[in-house]
Every structure is written in C-alpha cells, then in structure tokens.
Amino acid sequence: MSDPIRVVLVDDHRMFRSGVKAELGDAVAVVGEAPDVDSAIKVVREVQPDVVLLDVHLPGGNGNGGSDVVTGCAGVQTPGGDPVRFLALSVSDAAEDVIAVIRAGARGYVTKTISPGDLDTAIRRVAEGDAVFSPRLAGFVLDAFGATAGEIAEVDEELDRLSQREREVMRLIARGYQYKEVAKELFISVKTVETHVSSVLRKLQLSSRHELTSWAMSRRLL
C-alpha cells in the first residue's frame, strides 16, 4: 500500500481548515496548517509536503496572498526529491485571481464548491504532476498563456489523425473537464468519452491527461 499524499492546508479560517480535514479523512495525510503567508512559507519549508492546498486571499507577505506562498516556496522539494506542488482552493472564481496564482507556479485552481471526492481526486492529480482546474476556470488560464480557443494549425499531421469528435473531446479533457462533464457537454455517454480519450492518447502516443494538455497548448488548440 502506497503512503498517503502529504498535504499542508493554508487558509485564514481555522474552521474551514478543520472542515477540509474532516471531509478528506484518511484520503490524505495533513502534515501542517497555516493561516497566513509567512507561516505558510515556514511550514512548507519545514515539512516539505507533496501538495499545498491554499486559498488565494491570505494576510501577510507582500499582499499577493496565495501567490506569495507559491513564490516564497520556490525550489522546495519533497523528501523524495519531487517539487512541492500547489493547488489553489478558493471561493473566488475571478480571472485575475486564477491567473495570478498560476503565473506564480501553482498547478491548479478549484473553487470551494468542489465536492470532497472531487477535491481528493484533484489533490492526487496535482501530486502526480497534472494541471487541474474547475472547468470554467481553465479558459482563463489558456487565454492568459496565449492559447486561442478553436485555433487549429493549418498543417498538423498528428492532429489530422483525430476525428472531429475526438478533437472535441480532446479540447475539453485538456481544459480540465472530468469525463462526466465532457459527456454532459457533448451529449454522449461517459463510456463513449472514455473510448474517445483512449483513442486520442493512442493516436498521439501520449500517456496521461497532463501530456495531452501540454500537447494541446503547444499547438494553441484550446
């Protein structure tokens, strides 16, 4: 049995931190907590967690909240030598908040309306190196980093291997949509989504959603 993912919780509301811990239960190991930027940086450097789950609005630091935590912990690694990864968990869904913390180096951004099960999944995906976003927030990041919606390269042999439906599924998966959300968006079954994703990964010779996102963004397909 693998060791649980080690998490530090950063939020200025103690009751919220307690609630997140209770909801996640034994799914992860909470190895530290902090209510502000300065104590968060100190805790992260001391315990070297796998993932830091943090709000974007925090007191202290240079006034940039969660972004200050991410930049202040640049270069910190886990005991195993992997980089400490950051997942923003906030009530805010404002584009400027999303873009700021991602520019600082966070791997994902989800809102506090997320279910405990989906939060557990998001933490695990971030720990594995994936980028994770609540679906409507992914567009903010893609736009900010130069990916233009619907733009397709004139000549792209790899893209030409995909059918039109596979391209539609690929874009949504790369934006961070879950299978059930893709199914709802395209009016198809979850099983059909799974089949298309498997086909896309096979045709493009990719092995994960993270690689698929990087592939799509490099071609400005999102």
Rank of each mutant, 00 (worst) to 15 (best):
D3I: 04
I5Q: 06
R6E: 01
V8F: 07
V8M: 00
R17H: 00
R17L: 01
R17S: 02
S18H: 00
V20A: 05
A22P: 01
A29W: 14
V30G: 01
G32P: 06
G32M: 04
V37L: 06
S39I: 11
V44L: 09
V47S: 05
Q48Y: 10
V51L: 00
L54D: 10
D55W: 15
D55Y: 15
G60T: 00
G60R: 05
G60S: 02
G61Y: 11
N64C: 02
G65K: 02
G65E: 05
G65Y: 05
G66A: 05
S67C: 10
V70N: 03
V70D: 12
A74F: 06
A74W: 00
G75Q: 13
T78P: 14
T78Q: 08
P79H: 01
G80C: 12
V84F: 13
L87W: 09
A88S: 07
S90L: 15
D93M: 11
I99H: 08
V101T: 12
I102R: 12
G105A: 09
R107V: 00
Y109D: 05
V110W: 03
T113H: 06
I114L: 14
S115G: 11
G117C: 01
G117R: 11
L119T: 11
I123E: 07
R124G: 03
R124K: 10
R125P: 08
V126P: 11
A127R: 03
G129K: 09
A131L: 13
A131Y: 11
V132M: 06
V132F: 05
R136E: 12
L137M: 09
L137W: 07
F140M: 13
F140G: 13
V141F: 15
D143V: 15
A144F: 00
A144R: 04
G146Q: 02
A149Y: 08
E151A: 12
E151N: 15
E157T: 07
E157Q: 06
L159C: 08
D160I: 03
D160H: 07
R161L: 14
S163P: 11
Q164A: 12
L172F: 02
A174M: 06
G176H: 09
Y177D: 03
Y177C: 05
E181M: 11
F187E: 12
F187M: 13
F187A: 14
F187S: 13
S189M: 09
V190R: 07
T192Y: 15
T195W: 12
T195Q: 14
H196F: 02
V197L: 13
S199L: 06
S199E: 02
S199T: 10
V200K: 01
V200F: 06
L201W: 07
R202H: 12
L206C: 02
H210I: 01
H210R: 02
E211M: 00
M217D: 04
S218D: 02
R219N: 01
